[in-house]
Write a protein that binds this DNA or RNA. Structure first.
Lengths: 155, 155
DNA sequence: TTTTTGGTTCACAACAAAAAGAACCAATTT
DNA sequence: AAATTGGTTCTTTTTGTTGTGAACCAAAAA
């Protein structure tokens, strides 16, 4: 593949990742910064470089970086004698994805448990359905722990 | 638990489920309708009843119901000699949740594959990290099929 | 001490999303 | 045929989100 085409495709991918992340609740600027840090060959961007690369105001970048850091999506490193922060995307996202799924599952489980608990008639259509869903999700959440262990030992 | 307290808690739970679903990209009204249909003891609501219960305009309800139906979150039944539609939440969400997770996982896998493919240096920090993430997610996606089969046979 | 660097914070404008309300429409009832 | 029911659609209003630019600030350099 030609160098210029590769770059074009990378830029395209950044936009796509941006949209994906917006669907997960990230704001537009933040979402595209994630894409930038994942896709480009340059692996550490300073604040200024991001501002320049994305053609966006300093304040927007400042906010976005703060949010992304709080959410644990990105991190920064510093170098002695250099006041700039070098942002990069965090390393251990694999674990992160497992845990995200599991957390969400657990949260949903708890909600469903509460719904069932508050039902007047435990044999009603919805109560029965919800119990089924609960069972399925619980099974899955339990198995995830095994999978995590299996994967880690396999490494 | 007292009847009135149960009702209060149910209403609270509807709001909470509303917020949870908004995080998944549902609009406010739609999100709370899902809550309503999951939580309340009454299991089938007509259009009118929803309008009344939620104190919301007909147009907002009309739009929300349409969206929820398209997304497969709710369905309606009708009864002979009755022009009204009776909305309820769909029954087989357990499968749905499995599949949602798996679909998202597959989509992410494809994106990551593309990022890696476009990297100039396959030994760079990010390329290596991404390959790791890829491996983890792939392992997990593969195992999910097994889990589904295991669960279904167990039933 | 003043200036520069590397940002952050705040007020506001532009835009987008959500909800309301009115008008409308097709079936059904009267 | 007229009125009612069970909604839908369109326009407007309200509300919320994004991003900008200017002012500001602390640390370092001059």
């Amino acid at each position: 593949m030609e160098e210029s085409e590769r770059l074009r495709k990378q830029k395209e991918l950044i936009e796509y990742i941006g949209i994906q992340h917006q669907r997960e609740g990230y704001q537009p600027v933040a979402a595209r910064i994630v894409g930038l840090l994942m896709v480009m060959d340059k692996e550490e961007y300073t604040f200024e470089e991001i501002v320049e690369e994305m053609q966006i105001s300093k304040s927007a970048v400042s906010m976005a970086l703060k949010n992304l850091e709080i959410r644990g999506m990105i991190e920064y490193v510093t170098y002695p004698g250099d006041r700039k922060r070098y942002f990069r995307f965090v390393s251990n996202r694999a674990d992160g994805i497992f845990n995200e799924i599991q957390d969400k599952l657990k949260q949903n489980l708890e909600t469903i448990r509460q719904i069932i608990e508050l039902k007047k008639d435990p044999a009603s259509r919805n109560a029965v359905f919800l119990k089924n869903i609960y069972k399925g999700m619980e099974f899955f959440a339990r198995k995830m722990d095994d999978l995590k262990r299996e994967y880690n030992s396999q490494q």
